[in-house]
Design a binder for these strands. Structure first.
Length: 713
RNA sequence: GGUGAUGUAGCUCAGACGGUUAGAGCGGUGGAUUCAUAACCCACAGGUCGGCAGUUCGAUCCUGCCCAUCACCA
């Protein structure tokens, strides 16, 4: 039962952006990480858990300005809110710091300098939109104007929320800066790039991402896609600088240039740990030197795998540091099977959950019961949440103590009889403990909880069999009664050890109740001695009233107002690479986008229909697409200067040769979509049986006489 | 469209190197019990394991295609 050699483990969770509240989606990750860390500590390992607020970037800068405070004031306030929320959910960081810190700056500068010495930093001039009034360069998301396709006003620079068209900022009509309202101008600027395309980066990442255990298998597959085939370098250089004004760290040898927020975000892990080292007397270098014997794990959402599995190891390795031992990515949270939604009230903030008086350990248990080590999404089913917590935690687990403690207190003066070490229910738990430890280690918390609850069933069956309430009524059965209740409390204690990583507060109450030292994993091997005295039982956890959950949902319901006034919260979901995307913010953004769709009824209006720009198209060219099973590449003449390129999934039904020259119908205003094979600038219409009962695929064609470019309505 | 995943009882999820009656919890029904902040115990009902085809003596588990849902495409 003894744990092996103590390990030295450093663990991180992704840094939440300092511009928005923590919600249940974030908490999946922090609870998952916290359970794992608590487990490691219970095993006797040296394990440090650090995190920080991700504080830099344009959104924070503008938000602070909007509120009339400095960025420093804003991030200090948000830091306090985040810290409070995490503490409320018993997420026990050893250090919750900030990327806006001297330690992070020091590490960022050092990494930058070493990358530069390694020849991996390059300066290039790029052209970008600039706000002449505000005197700042504008990210795409901060340029607005009229949609070039449908004319909708106040659309962002990357895509139109009215018609869904995608475009670049310079296609917007009457563009203006979202910051000052002034028309932007194009201006050149020097940017600093990290040469991810360099051979040494590619070579490193190819090897690193394939090393056993670094990444989950699905994640490794994903990375292969980004890296491309052997000999095919799909990695592109990464723009790591932004122009002033910018809230961030100025690049040491480049006045007026700042590190892009995504450069210093992961470095924030180092900064936070460095700060902890100073306080705890730890040797930072021992943990970050290239051949370090310590372990480093990053828990992240699957959306930021790209940053953590490509940029980050490449930066570290070429700046003379160790790379992460493993990266643990998890899926997103859905609520009742759907994306979190403000109008449905399922966009639940951590603060509102706590304010409604719900017990954080309910959620910790529920998440634990559903967490796996894969990238699969996790559903919070509200009815299931109530049923599961009440049945498992109160009905099964807590009940064992509650039904035994009274007899011990009343009849035996709070003193236990020796436990029966051969009792099958006790032995079952002790034998299961190593297996459950492996499940915790492997982040298979769902499986672990299932095992624990099966063991709790065994404990209840034991109590039911020995029937203490009957023994209590009979004369001369005191010894049996004493033994039954003592065994039962020992069962309860053992189960508490197994649940302690998930339910730390309950475990603390149990330690007080049973009058024992803080439980460690090795306590699964021991039993309470005869004569051990316990405290009177006080209820350890209450049931969930479904009304509480209903009230929580009600409290989180937002009206269907268009994008709320905290516009800076709207992290651009599609403008990736321009702004940090934490899974939380992304979920939030998409939740908002989903609202509009949800509001629509089963019918569409004539206006909706008129949004479709359907055109008669002549197929001037049709060809096979190398490497695509279903696609045919079509060049379509719709009366424009140049034919449009469209990839159509019709290979199964049509030979390209027979398509050439014929007329069909295309959607001309569909947002262009970048595919592996090139840009697809529309869609051709074809009929097929939605049930799939009748096979075949049939392209639409106009009657003779129609000319390319004619509008269909 | 490509890539990665998912689709198993009303709900949330397990599981099976392909092989006699596919499991759990919740919910439902019936019983037992009253120690336990109605908790617990026993039993029953409930599924053509997304669809179609193939491989096989045999497939829900393998292969192919299709459908649906989710994510990513920097």
């Amino acid at each position: 039962m003894s744990t092996t050699q103590p390990r030295k483990i450093l663990v991180t969770s992704a840094l939440p952006y300092a511009n928005g509240a923590i919600h249940l989606g974030h908490l999946v990750e922090y609870i998952q990480t916290d359970i794992w860390v608590r487990f490691q500590k219970m095993r006797g390992h040296e394990c440090w858990y650090v995190c920080a607020d991700d504080t830099h970037g344009t959104p924070v800068m503008l938000r602070a300005e909007q509120e009339g405070i400095t960025p420093e004031q804003l991030i200090a306030r948000v830091h306090a809110e985040h810290s409070r929320d995490f503490a409320g959910f018993l997420v026990n960081f050893d250090n919750y710091y900030s990327t806006h810190s001297p330690e992070t700056q020091e590490c960022a500068n050092l990494i930058y300098r070493r990358l530069k010495e390694a020849g991996l930093i390059e300066v290039r001039t790029i052209e970008q939109y600039y706000d002449p009034v505000k005197a700042m360069f504008l990210p795409d998301r901060f340029i607005k104007g009229e949609c070039p396709k449908c004319g909708a006003k106040d659309q962002y620079g990357d895509n139109c929320e009215a018609c869904g068209a995608a475009y670049t900022p310079n296609e917007l009509k009457n563009p203006y800066s979202a910051v000052s309202g002034a028309p932007p101008v194009l201006k050149n600027s020097e940017h600093y790039f990290f040469k991810l395309s360099a051979p040494q980066c590619q070579e490193l990442l190819r090897r690193w991402t394939r090393e056993k255990g670094r990444l989950q298998p699905e994640a490794a597959n994903k990375l292969q896609e980004w890296l491309g085939e052997e000999g095919e370098n799909k990695l592109t250089d990464w723009d790591i600088s932004r122009d002033a004004p910018y809230f961030g760290f100025e690049i040491p040898d480049a006045p007026g240039k700042y590190f892009y927020v995504w450069l210093d975000a992961p470095i924030g892990y180092m900064g936070s740990f460095k700060n902890l080292c100073a306080r705890k007397g730890l040797d930072f270098d021992e943990w970050f030197k290239p051949d370090s014997a310590t372990e480093l794990y990053h828990f992240i959402g699957k959306d930021i795998l790209y940053f953590h599995a490509l940029f980050w190891p490449a930066e570290l390795a070429h700046a003379g540091f160790r790379t992460p031992s493993k990266i643990f990515a998890h899926g997103f949270l859905t609520v009742d099977g759907a994306k979190m939604s403000k109008s449905r009230g399922t966009f639940i903030t951590a603060a509102s959950y706590l304010a409604q008086g719900l017990d954080p350990e309910w959620l910790r248990y529920y998440f634990a019961g559903k967490l796996t080590n894969t990238l699969e999404d996790l559903d919070l089913s509200l009815d299931d949440f109530v049923a599961r917590v009440n049945a498992d935690l109160i009905g099964k687990y807590i009940n064992i103590a509650s039904r035994s403690a009274g007899f011990i207190i009343k009849r035996f003066n709070g003193q236990l009889a020796p436990a029966d070490a051969d009792l099958p229910a006790i032995r079952a738990i002790q034998e299961a403990a190593p297996r459950i430890a492996e499940l915790f280690e492997a982040r298979e918390f769902g499986k672990a909880m299932r095992e624990v609850m099966a063991l709790a069933d065994g404990a209840n069956q034991y109590v039911d069999r020995v029937k203490p309430w009957e023994l209590a009524r009979r004369e001369g059965q005191e010894v049996e009664l004493h033994a039954a209740c003592s065994n039962s409390l020992n069962l309860f204690r053992l189960l508490t050890v197994l649940l302690k990583p998930v339910l730390p507060d309950v475990a603390k109450k149990v330690e007080t109740f049973l009058n024992v030292a803080p439980l460690t994993w090795d306590d699964t091997a021991t039993l309470l001695a005869g004569g051990h005295g316990i405290q009177p039982y006080q209820h350890l956890m209450t049931r969930i009233d479904p009304k509480q959950v209903a009230a929580l949902v009600e409290a989180n319901k937002a009206s269907l107002a268009p994008a709320d006034t905290t516009a800076s919260q709207a992290a651009p979901a599609r403008a990736a690479g321009h702004s940090p995307q934490r899974h939380g913010e992304k979920q939030q953004h998409e939740a908002q986008a989903a609202e509009a769709a949800a509001a629509a009824g089963p019918h569409i209006s004539i206006d909706d229909f008129m949004k479709l720009d359907l055109r008669v198209a002549k197929i001037v060219e049709a060809s096979q697409v190398e490497g695509a099973d279903k696609l045919v590449r079509l060049m379509l003449d719709i009366g424009e200067e140049k034919p449009r390129q469209v990839f159509a999934g019709i290979k199964s039904a049509y030979d390209p040769a027979q398509l050439q020259g014929r007329l069909t119908v295309m959607v001309a205003n569909l947002a262009p979509r970048k595919m592996k094979f090139g840009l697809s600038e529309g869609m051709v219409l074809a009929a097929s049986d939605p049930e799939g009962k009748t096979s075949g695929l049939y392209l639409l064609a106009p009657d003779p006489g129609a000319q390319p470019g004619m509008r269909i309505k």
